[in-house]
Write a protein that binds this DNA or RNA. Structure first.
Length: 354
DNA sequence: AAACTAGTCAACCGCTAGTCA
DNA sequence: GTGACTAGCGGTTGACTAGTT
């Protein structure tokens, strides 16, 4: 079968970058007549381009639903997750990211994500750790499944998330809030209570020099989903992962198995907040040098963690649950006034622990 | 300031699959 | 069944830009 070439140079068809005038012609034509009939479109629209070029220009740039600008962390994680599922099926990946084109995603993957995965020791093809702290390769899809990464992002969701990100009291604030909780109560509650709150296997604690600190990384990617349901914090914090995977095998950050279950101080760190890939490190043992880092997000799926910070109400519920733990602890003598009895605002909560 | 290098991304190329006459 | 055509896909290219020497 011999095909007639789509773009015959001898026909004087133009190639290369599109001019604003060409864009205008194509846009107005498609707006009037709709998409399709690309082969005959250029002539009808008065364009000296081949149909294929017109289709690509429309699909990748002029379509009104195209979303321009930086990829969000949510989108980045969706891409990674979907790439783990589909491989280099960019169109399939693009279907999970409304407003983004396959071409754009492909470019972004090749120029940003791929390099960063490699830099972090993750094979961008197999999605497995190139070098693992415990000598094992963690499968990225499994990691993502554990993380319950949102794969479909709607435009409205994106707007809401952007809005939320701009909210000064959003993720970081919540992380600070949890830091305060940990810092405030870590010294006061005993280990069993802390373990019950954080996870059934107890927090993994790495020793660093002379200070014994549980540093818990809370990833901003936990800020994603919204849900009206609430999981009681005790379950919320220890469900899912600890049941299936020995925590120590995941969070033996130092790779030497050293943990100190008797630590009495707890600090939540938001060190990974700005890097959506950061939390992968906790699973593949790449943070060998980061002795104080531990994957708190491993205990939480996004939806659950969002419950901690989506609104003050949920945070209050969290506080209620935490307070209940504290009050039930025989060894704990701290009198705690539940925050939910106070004004339910972040400011109040922060002032409470401030 | 000029030359060079590396990164980015729009656009192109070659190919395949589906549809229709 | 065959050929023409269309649409779509993934890989690659090259123009442009920003950073570095």
């Amino acid at each position: 079968m011999v095909r007639t070439p789509c773009c015959k140079a001898e026909l004087g068809l133009k190639k290369g970058a599109w001019t604003p005038e060409e864009d205008q012609k194509l846009t107005s034509y498609v707006n009037r007549h709709g998409e399709g009939g690309w082969r005959t479109l250029p002539e009808r629209a008065g364009l000296k381009r081949c149909g294929k070029s017109c289709r690509l220009r429309w699909a990748n740039y002029l379509r009104p639903d195209i979303k321009r600008g930086e990829f969000t962390e949510d989108e980045e994680l969706s891409i990674i997750s979907l790439h783990a599922l589909h491989g280099n099926k960019w169109s399939a990946i693009a279907r999970g990211l409304p407003g983004r084109t396959d071409n754009e995603i492909k470019n972004y993957w090749n120029t940003h994500i791929r390099k960063r995965l490699i830099k972090k020791g993750i094979d961008p093809v197999t999605h497995k750790g190139l070098i693992s702290g415990n000598g094992k390769s963690e499968n990225l899809p499994e990691i993502l499944e554990k993380q319950n990464v949102t794969q479909t992002v709607t435009s409205d969701d994106e707007l809401d998330k952007e809005k939320a990100k701009k909210n000064a009291k959003s993720g970081l604030s919540s992380v600070r809030f949890l830091n305060r909780v940990a810092n405030s109560f870590g010294k006061k509650i005993n280990q069993s209570v802390l373990s019950e709150i954080i996870g059934s296997s107890g927090p993994q604690i790495t020793t660093s020099n002379t200070t014994t600190t549980t540093s818990v990384s809370i990833d901003s990617e936990s800020d994603k989903s919204t849900s009206s349901s609430f999981t009681p914090t005790s379950n919320l914090l220890n469900q899912k992962y600890v049941a299936t995977t020995p925590v120590s095998s995941i969070f033996d950050v130092g790779g030497n198995g050293n943990v100190n279950p008797t630590s009495s101080s707890s600090t939540f760190s938001d060190s990974s907040v700005n890097d959506p890939l950061m939390y992968f490190d906790n699973f593949i043992g790449n943070n060998i040098g980061d002795e104080d880092t531990i994957g708190f997000s491993g205990y939480l799926n996004d939806e659950d963690f969002m419950m901690l910070e989506e609104s003050c109400v949920e945070n209050s519920v969290f506080m209620k649950e935490l307070t209940r733990f504290l009050q039930e602890d025989e060894n704990n003598v701290v009198e705690v006034t539940p925050v939910y009895e106070r004004q339910d605002t972040f400011e109040e909560i922060e002032n409470y622990f401030g």
